[in-house]
Design a protein around this nucleic acid. Structure first.
Lengths: 327, 327
DNA sequence: TTGTAGGCGTTATCAC
DNA sequence: GTGATAACGCCTACAA
């Protein structure tokens, strides 16, 4: 960069390199992009000029011309959550290794924000979007001629969804509680109206309960839900929470009520993120294969970006039961 | 968007809107950017055409012309960490409210990655960068004529740094342990060669220990550090960990060794993120004002972006001591 | 009040 | 091998 005057900074551009090297801009471009025939002498002159001026190509101008930004949009509720934090870490990581950058959007589970983000990402000409926000279906996703992948979230009819095997997770969690002798098992989950594959956790819970002649009872996350659960079910002896943070809250409330875990009450969560494993290692949980989910999501997105076809829509990755000390 | 053939999708552009509305591109641009005088009739015609074609301005082309992208680069070690996850959440949030988007970079504490990211962000013409990666000083930050702010991290001589009042935090943590009767207090911290304000936590610890005629002893994070600490200090009765995750690991190891907390050993962490408060609510800790840090960092960055001057370099925000059940 | 023309920094096509 | 030149989609003087 060189200063024009005290306030304005002028970036070095292709033409400056060309002038310095005594060649045309075309030649510089060719050298930098390894295209066509270039004499070694010219190539070297150009490289020297690039070094000397510390030239950085302007990706904006480049993107405009090649109609590709190498930017992927990520729409998730929030990075302030161990599961999404870990997932986004891997997504960004993989993108980086493929030469893509990542535009981050925290939708906070708000439909209006998600729609705005979707528009914004399109205006910025992202090459694709991976979304996992916990919203109801957003019709805007339907008519996008844009590479799209959902994680744990149905976006639209033909958009691939990657998730852990939620049904299997729900089954294993519920069975563990039953095997451990629980008689009154309650499930806590998000609103079933959010059309997410996580609903399968509830379905599995209900199926397994019925198979075993138990009465399923699901509490929907909301204000004071955990206190209410305990108040209304003084004999509850097993709780399957649909994520680890809820499980932690259950454990705290149980402690407050002097309910012994796992003696009087057994608790199992869902997610099994690295953060949870460190902060609450004793929690029994269903661990999602976060990295594998990220890998697959990117793979499916890249297929779309590269115009390759893929007919499978739903992808379920195996979960792992972690037996801790809370069951 | 309209299809040209089966495979190619052509985006709607300004010219298409102009044609549809029967005006020039200039006029459409003026309407959309609210510039100059436009008759109500024309304005309406344009808006109708925009609706009809579902036109989305191409921000890439726009950025190229106005030489501003409204994109901020964020360089942090990883979103897979409660503190950074929460911090990045707030940073993104505030940016969004100001009309800026965020390009996320997980440097993983690797100097090479951080340098690459820095170049990449410049090629993408970001309007500014906020970095908090845990690296040694990277000289590339010196010669950037680019708005820059560090969080808990000295980037370069004249780049503003925002952090919590680490010295005060270290002081309060150490004092709490002393007040609670601990005699052999050990501190665990990252490498002092990382030039981060977090070093002040150690300094404060050492100062307070000396003031009280105690012998300070700091363990540097590394392999099996916690086991070693316990092996080498069987009488340790107080541990001040420089973050909550380490504190959690200490607690786990103590449990494994049947050391009673807080009876035989008192533990205090640092950060006090929302995630920690949920997963490990009993932990005593020093809570950082994460949202305030984010607010201030963005404010300082925007000042630079808008060319306003600001002479203060170091900014320390007040922490809060949380007395839990581990002390 | 609206349109024409030129340029933002890069790349690709076509000459030479 | 290399160099003009015309895009990419948008915005803003300057004209009309």
């Amino acid at each position: 960069m060189r200063k024009i005057n005290e306030n304005e900074i002028q970036k070095v551009k292709l033409g400056d390199v060309a002038d310095k090297a005594g060649v045309s801009r075309t030649t510089v471009s060719r050298v930098l992009n390894n295209r066509g025939y270039i004499s070694d002498k010219t190539r070297q002159k150009v490289h020297e000029a690039v070094e000397l001026l510390n030239y950085q190509p302007n990706e904006i101008a480049r993107s405009l011309f090649i109609k590709k930004t190498y930017i992927i949009g990520l729409i998730f509720p929030t990075t302030n959550n161990p599961f999404y934090g870990q997932l986004i870490f891997h997504l960004e990581n993989i993108c980086e290794s493929l030469g893509y950058r990542v535009l981050l959007c925290n939708s906070q589970g708000r439909e209006d924000k998600e729609k705005d983000y979707l528009k914004m990402l399109q205006r910025h000409q992202v090459d694709g979007i991976i979304a996992g926000a916990h919203n109801r279906g957003i019709e805007e996703y339907n008519n996008q001629h844009l590479p799209l992948v959902g994680i744990d979230r149905y976006l639209s009819k033909n958009i691939p969804v990657v998730s852990s095997d939620n049904y299997d997770g729900g089954k294993k969690a519920t069975r563990l509680l039953i095997d451990k002798g629980c008689k009154q098992i309650i499930h806590i989950n998000g609103s079933p109206s959010l059309e997410t594959p996580a609903n399968l956790r509830r379905e599995a819970y209900e199926d397994v309960m019925k198979e075993n002649q138990f009465h399923p009872r699901t509490y929907i996350i909301g204000d004071n839900i955990i206190e209410r659960l305990f108040d209304e079910n003084p004999n509850v002896d097993g709780i399957f929470a649909s994520d680890d943070l809820i499980a932690a809250n259950v454990i705290r409330e149980a402690k407050r009520r002097n309910i012994n875990i796992p003696g009087d009450l057994k608790v199992i969560g869902y997610d099994g993120t690295e953060t949870t494993r460190i902060l609450l290692p004793e929690l029994s949980t269903i661990q999602q294969p976060v990295k594998e989910i990220a890998d697959l999501a990117i793979k499916l997105l890249m297929k779309q970006i590269n115009g390759e076809s893929e007919s499978q829509i739903e992808w379920k990755l195996p979960i792992k039961l972690i037996k801790g000390e809370t069951t």
